[in-house]
Amino acid sequence: MREVMEFLQFAFVQRALLSGVFIAVGCGLLGVFLVLRRHSMMGDGLAHFAFATVGLALLMGWAPLYVSIPLVALASLLILHLPTRATMYGDAAIGMVSAVGVAIGVLLSSLGGGFSVDLFSFLFGDILAVGRMEARLALGLVVGVVVAILLAYHELFAVTFDDTSARVSGIRPERSSRLLAVLTALMVVLGIRVVGMLLVSSLLIFPAVTALQLCRSFKAVLVTSAMLAALSVVTGIFIALWLNTPAGATIVLVNAAFFSASLLRRT
């Protein structure tokens, strides 16, 4: 344990913990809306699409974060828009965008040849490798996401609960849906650094579903989900340092343990 505490003296561990906690809080808050609106797989689909954007950035030699944020945000709007233009439901749109992202990613990876190792770190996450600039950008964006959620809280809650009645209150559900989609895209891109593309949706889903088992009110679910997400990241990083396991996978398994415990508490 002393060794683990000694790790805290290292700047890279401090950065990982700080940016991880902030990103987790954003994911925890957003996840509640996504799960209750039955858009849980939106995070998964966007993460798969990010495979293409990261591939493009690596191929061109650009910073993946700057390329991924606008492109994944556009993909999130496309997922919302497709079911209104074509005869399909939202889950099919997620599946299609996700598949196209992976296909382009694989194509770019084969074209680039040399960056497969870098791509691998994005697939499985590497929070302990977060740089200073990246951490600052992540913190700024997460603060923006949290402020947006707080400002739009009542509208998001109303639309999530019943969008027809929300409309009769003068609320435009389309605006709330677009806001949620873009914020989700931001958190997915940032979350990729923490747990990787393959597991980022777990940061959106697990804390929210666990909080749903424990709380009665909407506000309590939001706060609990954010706290559980942050706690899972801190616990996961410490366990990973202690047992020398991959941080991303450990964080996901900690989340699974929290969820199992919440089920035991219910029964």
Binding site: L36, L151, A152, Y153, H154, E155, F157, A158, F161, D162, S165, A166, V168, S169, G170, I171, A211, L212, C215, R216, S217, F218, K219, A220, V221
Partner: peptide
């Protein structure tokens, strides 16, 4: 996950300006 109080309070959002 919404209490009765939270559900009824949603009705009060009508006619308010953002952020309501």
């Amino acid at each position: 996950p919404a209490t009765v109080r939270e559900v009824v309070a949603l009705g009060r959002l009508a006619g308010k300006r953002f952020p309501r």
